[in-house]
Write a protein that binds this DNA or RNA. Structure first.
Length: 490
RNA sequence: CGGGGUAUAGCGUAGUCCGGUUAUCGCGCCACAUUUGGGAUGUGGAGGUCGUAAGUUCGAAUCUUACUACCCCGACCA
């Protein structure tokens, strides 16, 4: 394996091909643009899923499940939504196969053509709103706060492992409300939930912001987002939350009888994060030795590696390992004692580093005779020889340190790669170096598109907490009241 | 969909220009022995429709054509 991933990442495909596949996370399947997620990778996703699900439930949401297939006509109902998704849909036209007339292989049975084609969901707004129409009669039925964990398909022309696969796993929340304010508050709230998840669990710092009209979700009135920066300085949209206004309620005729006995259209929000977050996790923390996982999401937090020669030594180590496992499990820390005789210690060291296990404890007969063990932390690769006294407490604290350190490191890197740029000449130079450029912008889509055309940079978001500041648009010189983030993105 | 590239064992590859013995090498895998403090060593062994299909030829991994998949660049992309 080449030893310079972090500095060599002109493109992350290379990172994924070498790092992720070797890390047993995923591998290409033969289906175009899809990926197989291996058990270790899926274990990370399950942890993410579980954490997010808990956060959703704490904010009053319930899980539900809607069909994979959506009648084509549903898509025709919301004009912008059609525009946004029509070009990338998988379409089901038949429900049966038949022997090919030439006797070779199978073809769709001409007699089994569907009256109306079905679309494999690229997102579920349409089918969910068609359902909500039947669920909502009065303001007493509101709000509806549903989430679904599902897979979706978007027939992208160009795919990239984890970041843009043809099929991906995600959650999508769909809520219905009485008022515009309630719906918009909901979408803002969920943006904050996503941001908290990214920062506290993934240790990935994100900017909370609003998308420009040009970058907005097809069919949304407003799109809130969390935007992260990868180690190479490129931006990654990590999650979005949309205020949909009454667009889908109008398209699917979802009305409710209000408190003043009037028929009103329902207000909506939708929000989602996907397996793309796994890409963000890898690209934010991993290094030349492989994955680095934050303790909060690592499937395995601590691994114990024994080194011994005699049975007597093994017994002594086993006793300590048992004790440690009992102590750590009591603290809800996941731990594995790898005394597999088929592999040697050196092999195990490399293996667990590659998998990003946060803490490794080497239980060596030699050190143990002096009452010591070697504690290795994956984030800094530092080794620490310490007494077995109070070891469980030490490891518990160390995991917290690692979690914090990963976040701090990412914040520091982002700060280094974020700067104000005030002239167009500087902009063209600086954008080549990567990172976030904080610039004034005149607020028009026209300017945004010209900048994109000339530099490939897009406005990642208008940060919600950016200070108001008078300035001139970097491109047109027209007045502007706050800086926005320009960057190249994945 | 346009431009460029690639396809040989589980993985990485040599051979392709210039057709010719049993398709090369490394890693991994299996057996045995010796080995355990940073991916052990030796000996032996298994593993191949050379991406698919057709064509040229006495003979094709090698030449021709078509197709498919993947990678890079573009277009595209809440």
């Amino acid at each position: 394996m080449a030893k310079d991933f972090v500095t060599r990442q002109e493109n992350y495909s290379e990172w994924y091909n070498e790092l992720v596949v070797r890390a047993d996370l995923a591998e290409n399947s033969s289906v175009r643009g899809c990926m197989v997620i291996k058990p270790y990778g899926y274990a990370i996703w399950e942890k993410m899923q579980h954490t997010l699900d808990t956060m959703f439930k704490e904010t009053g949401h319930h899980n539900a499940y809607f069909p994979l297939f959506i009648p084509k006509s549903f898509f025709e109902k919301e004009a912008e939504h059609v525009e946004g998704f029509a070009k990338e849909c998988a379409v089901v036209t038949h429900h049966r196969l038949a022997k090919s007339p030439d006797g070779k292989g199978l073809v769709p049975d001409p007699d089994a053509r569907l009256e109306e084609e079905l679309i494999v969901r690229p997102t579920s707004e349409t089918i969910i709103w068609d359902t909500y129409r039947r669920w909502i009669k009065s303001y007493r039925d509101l709000p509806i706060l549903c989430n679904q964990w599902a897979n979706v398909v978007r027939w992208e022309m160009r795919t990239r492992m984890f970041l843009r696969t043809a099929e991906f796993l995600w959650q999508e929340g769909h809520t219905a409300h009485e008022t515009s304010e309630q719906a918009e508050d909901e979408s803002v709230k969920m943006m904050h939930v996503y941001a908290d998840f990214a920062e506290k669990y993934m240790a990935v710092p994100v900017v909370r912001g609003v998308k420009t009209a040009n970058e907005r979700f097809a069919g949304a009135v407003n799109t809130y987002c969390i935007e992260a920066m990868m180690q190479d300085g490129k931006a990654l949209q990590a999650g979005t939350s949309h205020f949909l206004g009454q667009n889908f309620a109008k398209a699917f005729d979802v009305k409710y009888l209000s408190r003043d006995n009037k028929l009103e259209y329902v207000w909506a929000s939708s929000w989602g994060v996907s397996t793309r977050l796994m890409g963000a996790l890898i690209m934010t923390h991993s290094d030349d030795n492989g994955l680095v996982l934050p303790p909060a999401l690592a499937p395995l937090q601590v691994v114990l590696v024994p080194i011994f020669k005699t049975d007597e030594e093994k017994q002594m180590i086993d006793a300590l390992a048992d004790q440690l496992m009992t102590d750590l499990k009591a603290k809800n820390i996941s731990i594995k004692y790898d005394d597999d005789a088929k592999t040697k210690p050196g092999w195990k060291f490399n293996e667990y580093e590659f998998k990003g296990v946060p803490v490794r404890v080497t239980l060596g007969a030699r050190d143990l005779k002096e009452g010591k063990v070697e504690v290795f932390r994956r984030d800094t690769c530092e080794k620490d020889l310490r007494s077995t006294e109070g070891l469980a407490e030490h490891i518990e604290k160390l995991l917290k340190d690692i979690q914090q350190n990963l976040f701090d490191k990412a914040v520091k890197l982002r700060a280094e790669k974020t700067r104000n740029v005030d002239t167009w000449e500087d902009f063209k130079k600086e954008i080549e170096k990567g990172g976030f450029l904080m610039c004034h912008w005149d607020g028009t889509t026209e300017t945004e598109l010209k900048i994109k055309e000339e530099t490939k940079a897009t406005i990642r978001c208008i940060p919600i907490d950016a200070p108001q500041e008078e300035g001139k648009c970097i491109y047109t010189g027209k007045p502007s009241h706050q800086r926005v983030i320009f960057a190249r993105n994945y």
